[in-house]
């Protein structure tokens, strides 16, 4: 078990999504859009913590395909309750990242 002093030494990035259809689509998109990365999903019932290390990209088109309906990137905000790392919001994708690797 890690101590509290050590746990801030991490490189986790990624969205914390409220439970539901969009959260599931984001989990699938995270896998597809970040093929070389291990995606970890923690289920906290009310929310899903979807994480990888250093950088995660989510593409609008991938989420749209996973949902099976039109999706604009800004709609992610309806369920995006928090996130680890920094955020970069673009029209066609959203990116979570750390500038520094610890």
């Amino acid at each position: 078990m890690s101590t509290a002093a050590e746990v801030s030494q991490n490189n986790n990035v990624g969205p914390v999504m409220r439970q539901g259809e969009l959260a599931q689509a984001v989990v699938e998109a995270a896998e597809i859009d970040n093929p070389d990365k291990i995606i970890k999903v923690e289920d906290k019932v009310a929310y899903l913590r979807i994480q990888t290390s250093d950088e995660m990209i989510l593409k609008r088109q991938t989420i749209e395909e996973m949902l099976g309906r039109p999706f604009s990137m800004s709609e992610i905000e309806i369920e995006l309750a928090s996130f680890a790392g920094r955020i970069d919001t673009q029209v066609e994708y959203i990116r979570f990242y750390h500038a520094k690797h610890l």
Partner: peptide
């Protein structure tokens, strides 16, 4: 929330 997530972003900035 505070140690793993927030403190980490503070250092990143």
């Amino acid at each position: 929330w505070i140690v793993t997530q927030f403190e980490r972003s503070l250092i990143d900035l």
